[in-house]
């Protein structure tokens, strides 16, 4: 019983995963929902990993769709051209996607994170757009017509059983596990201290540049992995999927779920993935809705707009 209590998160996650796989193969959930559920898991990876940068490190990153795109195209190209035994091919592709995303995060992170100020936000914003441009301009990525015929979970299951959505579920679980444990380790503690007070952190002997890069590149790694998993979920890729709006959707998930709150990110990822799919009228107004949400959450957080808080009305209507 004590074990159950302690490992509640782990056990319930395992149960949900087993049920999902079971339902899927028994055909209880129809394909439409299966697609959405897969997207939910991809968005969980994206939201939780971005939370590491925004919530724990305290830096705004606006280009995670760019890292995701790097991962997606890396994986698409590798699985097309690389000749490896089936059991190795997929894991190698996923890993390389993450690693390439990390390398590009260093190119972006090293010049911007060593400076005081909010350079990371603007650099990542530009970076996301540039990646999109480069992908559109290159031949190997299929240019503006997109990349078609990527090995995917539905059609290639017979030829390569390892390309499988269970891998996606497991990776989502792994992301949550790794990042939540990381934030509780000594490294995570140091990263939070940088968010709270950079000068005091440095004066306490912390090499802040190393830890900033560590947090940011870890976040990029998982975004790259998510991109790879997305490529194999979708089967085709188009560069404009990975635009600024997608980066902002990830930021919304983090902000709505609470900066520094991993469970919140998961909940927000589930909610915000289902919402536009179920409400098609919402889908085209969603950026409008998201932007208002961003502003309101920030203002409420700072308590300077009392009329946005429930307590304000409670006091007034119910008297004290």
């Amino acid at each position: 019983m004590a074990f159950y209590k302690k490992q509640f998160g782990l056990i319930s996650a395992a149960v949900i995963l087993i049920l999902l796989v079971l339902f899927r193969y028994l055909g209880i959930i129809d394909d439409y929902y299966i697609t959405i559920i897969d997207l939910v898991f991809i968005n969980i990876i994206l939201a939780v990993s971005l939370n590491l940068t925004i919530g724990f490190l305290g830096q705004l990153a606006l280009g995670n769709a760019g890292f995701m795109a790097i991962g997606a195209y890396t994986s698409a190209i590798l699985t097309t051209y690389l000749k490896l035994p089936p059991i190795l091919l997929f894991p190698v592709a996923v890993l390389c996607s993450g690693v390439l995303a990390v390398l590009s995060s260093l190119i972006v992170g090293i010049p911007s994170l060593r400076l005081k100020g909010d350079y990371l936000a603007i650099i990542t914003l530009g970076f996301g757009e540039i990646i999109k441009n480069i992908i559109t301009g290159l031949k190997i990525t299929g240019g503006a017509r997109g990349y078609k015929g990527i090995m995917n979970y539905n059609t290639d299951f017979e030829t390569n059983a390892y390309v499988n959505m269970i891998v996606l579920y497991l990776f989502a679980g792994l992301t949550v596990f790794v990042i939540s444990n990381f934030t509780k380790s000594r490294h995570g503690r140091v990263i939070k201290s940088i968010r709270d007070n950079e000068i005091a952190s440095e004066a306490s002997g912390v090499n802040i540049m190393y830890y900033k890069l560590l947090g940011f590149s870890m976040s990029a790694f998982f975004a790259g992995v998510a991109g790879s998993l997305y490529a194999h979920h979708n089967g085709i890729l188009a560069a404009n999927k990975f635009d600024f709006n997608y980066s902002i959707e990830m930021v919304i998930m983090v902000v709505l779920g609470g900066m520094g709150n991993i469970k919140g990110s998961i909940a927000a990822a589930i909610f915000l993935t289902f919402l536009p799919q179920l409400l098609s009228s919402f889908s085209d107004k969603r950026m409008l809705f998201y932007s208002i949400l961003l502003i309101i959450v920030m203002l409420v957080k700072n308590k300077n707009y009392p009329f946005l808080k429930i307590d304000f009305y409670k006091k007034r209507l119910l008297g004290r």
């Binding site: 380790s185 000594r186 995570g188 201290s193 709270d196 007070n197 005091a200 306490s204 002997g205 912390v206």
Partner: peptide, 27 residues
């Protein structure tokens, strides 16, 4: 200059970080 949103004990634990050995993977 404290780490205001962190617990009192975590403020002190950050200071000890430099003498600790376990790496990221072990963490």
């Amino acid at each position: 200059r404290l780490f205001k949103s962190m617990s009192v004990i975590d403020n002190v634990k950050v200071a000890y970080n430099q003498n600790m050995k376990y790496n990221e993977l072990q963490g």
